[in-house]
Design a protein around this nucleic acid. Sequence first.
DNA 1: TTGAAAGCGTTACCAT
DNA 2: ATGGTAACGCTTTCAA
Lengths: 333, 333
Amino acid sequence: MKVTIYDVAKEANVSIATVSKVLNNSGRISEKTRKKVKQIMKELNYQPNMLASALMGKQTKTIGLLIPDLANPFFSELARSIEDRGNELDYHLVICNTDYNNAKENRYLSLLKQKRVDGFILASGFEKLDKVQELISEEIPVVIVARDFPMFSVNAVALDDFTGGYLAAKHLVDLGHKNIGVIARDLWSNRERLRGFHHVLAENHLTLNPNFQFVNEVDHIKAGRNMAAKYIHSDNRPTAIFACNDLLAAGVIQMAKELGLDIPQDLSVVGFDNTSIVSIIEPPLTTIAQPIQNMGKEVMDLMVSIINEEKDAKSRVTLLPSLVLRKSTKKIT
Amino acid sequence: MKVTIYDVAKEANVSIATVSKVLNNSGRISEKTRKKVKQIMKELNYQPNMLASALMGKQTKTIGLLIPDLANPFFSELARSIEDRGNELDYHLVICNTDYNNAKENRYLSLLKQKRVDGFILASGFEKLDKVQELISEEIPVVIVARDFPMFSVNAVALDDFTGGYLAAKHLVDLGHKNIGVIARDLWSNRERLRGFHHVLAENHLTLNPNFQFVNEVDHIKAGRNMAAKYIHSDNRPTAIFACNDLLAAGVIQMAKELGLDIPQDLSVVGFDNTSIVSIIEPPLTTIAQPIQNMGKEVMDLMVSIINEEKDAKSRVTLLPSLVLRKSTKKIT
DNA sequence: TTGAAAGCGTTACCAT
DNA sequence: ATGGTAACGCTTTCAA
């Protein structure tokens, strides 16, 4: 059967208190007994039961990660980088796919709370904030990542989406484009990107292509294709399209090519995220890069520092996007 | 503070035993008290502590998933499908990236054992099987997925890799190719695919392009590029390449195009996995499809049935790959 | 139908 | 330096 501290204690002729102390390097134990106990633990292949110690108030060393969709490269790369840092810091991740579905979000939150995770990293939509609010009032550590809630005080590491949109628009406008379409889902971050985008347009006395509207298909590639077709078939076809993520951009490029357009000659397109698929796309996609690795590290570090109460003030880390030039945009002639 | 069964019991004027019973729908409780207790639980917003109940021998409802790399589309899609099924069955997933590194694998195993996960789903390499063997002898449920261990009796849901290789070779040979290159990492599943591949070649008195050798870069796209360059520059250039995953194939296509070859006119390429990136590749990739959704469901179902001891005999589910024709292969002329 | 009490495997305080 | 023991929050007999 499972070996417990009792077994170790008996075998080593000490009390369980002593065993517990050598386990945690706490209290004062003579070098001699420490050696002996450790020895016995090896022999018996003793594995401490974390459930019991967590029940006594210690950490579970487990973080809940709520993410919209692991099959989306941006999120899987983000999850990967968070897990990497977690591993270094000895935390495990319970990863949950929410599909931006509020009911799923809430269900996961409540279930993981019952499992007493040490904290939550939220990368999901959470258009309804009440449950998140609840976590906070219960003093459960929460960090938001890749999703901003400017209206409400919570720890977060986010991208400066406004700047992202700004950069994209600036690049396109600098290339001489005057009729630009945008493709985006109706998410907070995208509204920010649009704000940045509009800012540049306004500076240049330009306006968005009037066919713009938010898309809502879950399959991003398909969404990109459909919206691209709509833009291309309209009687006032844009010369450039800014897609709010790389998958959308991939769809745009696909459809544009199928409709006989040359990228970037007939249509410039810039994506967002800089996931690993950008180099697969033909032509390689010019995109606004999110520093995914960094983001993962920052969010995990922030989480852990909150858990350890190293900082009581809420803090917010904002990372900057950057423009990565490849081959999908071109100066207008 | 945290509300426990004691609080609920007190408030409802019953014993904690009664509360526990209504919680688990066990024992016989009068409808009246059941109602009352449930009512109080609502009011107090009582959340049962799973740590405590797991400590008493109940399940943790958590499964450890060891996977090589979440940033690889095949694995993230697989993880996604496993998690989906887990969610339906009320299990959470702790996801760990192993990078095919045996030390990491073992470390995760031991840590998750301490957390008393109900079982392990292993999608990682595990070239050293001792720790897996150990799990089995400790009667901890284990299922292997997307990775076969024919030599050793363990529950598994795997792809018929031999058939996968067979299908790829058959397709290429049917198109008239006689000089075919292969690109693969040295993994068990790839050795099987090669076996199936060779089988077809032998049937047709053909032999593999002699420049073949296993690759081992971790960056698959890069690996595909490098190996493709090698094949293309050799003085006996293959007319077709079988890449053992889609990423590798993407690299091949990229490099081939950079070197001025037309796909599929000058070089046919078939991939493996049928991940979502295939439709982004130009031209769309002909590939051997793994039924990823199915695989995720099967593995989770198998896991749960083992946990619930619905089957004591080891079982092994083998799924069949299929050829998906797209535009990257062409009849030789 | 309900409740008392004995665990589950730890930690931590207080003695010794 | 070491050990006894009361928690932690729950489940599960066994009595009542």
